[in-house]
Design a protein around this nucleic acid. Structure first.
Length: 497
RNA sequence: GCGCCGCUAGCUCAAUUGGCAGAGCAGCGGACUCUUAAUCCGCGGGUUGUAGGUUCAAGUCCUACGCGGCGCACCA
């Protein structure tokens, strides 16, 4: 039996488009030419002839083009709306008396929605005032073999994510989001650059698992014959850089965490992490606020951003600070501190239907209570300060209150957007904390860090007192746009179809 | 990982109690020289996510699996 012709199984509309491609080839016309005439972009034409009055020829001839997104064919006059990559739209007109019978008929029979076409002709305005190119000739720039989805019904969320290229074609907001993200990342780089931070790139393939509490992805190096971890954080390398005298250092790059995927978590996520010698968590708090405000201004021209659903989020001015235990006490209606014992905290947890892991110490339990009771209430930006030592092994002890650390988390819209520490720089204390972590790891805790002797050796050379911070870029986009994390990531990981 | 909901034409969605699988847009043929989600006439387009089962009869009921969404758990 001969191999089945794959075209036989195609949906009707794809067969039709393939046959149009075949016809172009048969007639010696290239469906995918290496180059097409293009003297101006649609945007340039729109800008140059913005004030051309209704029903007026400009006298100027251009070659331009774009993707066909809307077709209105008449008997002796055809209209098509073309769209360029930047979203600019312009009408093409093909009339019998300009292009002739053959070219007009070819246009009507060979051009489909979604094709990218080129037209050459005079810039005019139609009788209805629409700026147009009245074609003398047209040619195919790229024949689309798949039909475009309906322009006026939203694509299902799954198709939007799986076929982002289609989403980008049909949904202007999808293209906006790409631009907004680029604007935010550039604004952050400029904010740090102007404060004399140096951008570096540190290893993404790491021999040891550390820098945060998270489950890593594991991969393998054939050359080294050893397993490697995709990094969960750049922290331990950026601190090595500070030890070496790179006093203000940052990295914007991806981290990988082998954990749950939901509307606020992606297995690979972009993060800004920055360290500053001779700073502490108070300095970082001021700066992070400024960086976020500068990013907001770059996007919205204001410190008040408007989400796609119309909600306004006010990021202006100073942002409130609360303490972890203070906010938790207020939510419980009972005074709790870092000294409140575990039994008492467990009673509060039970009272609020929070299941308690027996492995949790009092610090972890207090943090869980906070996440359960307080976190979702923090819609406008709020710094939550002073976390228990138990949950922050890389953070310096609080300068006033024993048992606490100098760490804050920034919450916006109920999600954790950023975190910062006064960094732990005492190599002896750091070793104690990491040994404790490695014992947890050896005991089977998949999130605990391994003992990084090289990191400790670096610390033993002396790290200046420093502030450090980390912020999820995807989450910053969420805060600025109101979108879900999968909309802020151009090509999020999805299961195979 | 657990629970709930969904999966039907290229896209977005209907289909009553289990009783002929439909619409809009898109597509094909035709008409139309100023259209703007054009209009008019005509015509095609389906392994109803996959594999089983029950039944005279399954898009519909049952089982398993796949994919997605939401909630819970873990995390940023």
């Amino acid at each position: 039996m001969p191999a089945p012709d794959p075209a036989e199984d195609l949906p009707e509309q794809m067969r039709v488009r393939r046959s149009k491609r075949d016809r172009l080839l048969a007639e010696g016309r290239e469906p995918y030419p290496v180059t097409v005439a293009r003297s101006a972009s649609l945007k340039e034409i729109r800008e140059k002839y913005a004030s051309l009055p209704t029903d007026t020829p400009s006298g100027d001839t251009v070659s331009t083009g774009g993707r066909v997104i809307f077709i209105r064919n008449g008997g002796k006059l055809a209209f098509a709306t073309l769209r360029d990559g930047d979203g600019t739209e312009l009408q093409a007109m093909l009339s019998l008396d300009k292009v002739g019978e053959q070219a007009l008929s070819d246009w009507k029979h060979l051009v489909d929605l979604g094709d990218i076409v080129s037209v050459s002709g005079e810039v005019i305005t139609s009788k209805r005032g629409e700026l147009s190119v009245l074609a003398d000739s047209w040619s195919m720039s790229a024949k689309a073999l798949r039909p475009l989805p309906v322009a006026h019904k939203p694509l299902s969320e799954e198709t939007r994510v799986r076929q982002r290229y289609v989403d980008l074609i049909v949904r202007p907001q999808a293209r906006d989001t790409v631009r907004t993200r680029a604007t935010v990342v550039r604004a952050l780089r400029e904010s740090l650059f102007h404060r004399n931070f140096l951008e570096v790139e540190t290893p993404m393939l790491q021999l040891l698992h550390g820098g945060a509490a998270a489950r890593p992805f594991v991969t393998h190096s054939n050359a080294l014959d050893t397993d490697l971890y995709l990094r969960i954080a750049p922290e331990l390398f950026l601190k090595r850089a500070v030890v070496g005298g790179i006093d203000r250092v940052f990295e914007i790059n991806r981290n990988f965490r082998n954990e749950g995927i939901d509307s606020t978590h992606s297995p690979e996520f972009a993060m800004l992490e920055a360290y500053q010698a001779y700073a502490d968590y108070n300095v970082m708090q001021q700066q992070v606020r400024e960086w976020i405000q500068e990013a907001a201004f770059a996007v919205a021209g204001s410190h008040i951003v408007t989400h796609y659903d119309g909600t306004e989020l006010d990021l202006s001015g100073e942002w409130p600070s609360v303490t972890l235990f203070g906010s938790l006490s207020a939510a419980l209606g009972e005074e709790v501190t870092v000294d409140t014992d575990r039994t008492q905290l467990a009673r509060y947890a039970e009272k609020h239907d929070l299941s308690v892991d027996p492995k949790w110490g009092p610090g972890k339990l207090a943090e869980e209570l906070f996440e359960h009771l307080v976190q979702h209430t923090l819609q406008t930006p709020t710094f939550v300060r002073d976390y228990p030592e138990e949950t922050a092994p890389l953070t310096r002890a609080h300068r006033e209150t024993p048992g606490l650390t100098e760490k804050w988390d920034l919450y916006v819209m109920g999600i954790e957007l950023a975190t910062a520490y006064s960094e732990l720089v005492d190599p002896v204390v750091q070793r104690e904390r990491l040994v404790a972590q490695s014992l947890l790891a050896a005991g089977g805790d998949p999130e605990a860090m391994q003992l990084d002797e090289d990191f400790l050796r670096a610390m033993e050379y002396g790290m200046p007192p420093s502030g450090g911070m980390g912020m999820g870029i995807d989450r910053l986009l969420m805060a600025l746009t109101g979108l879900g994390i999968r909309e802020t990531i151009l090509f999020p990981l999805v299961r195979p179809e």
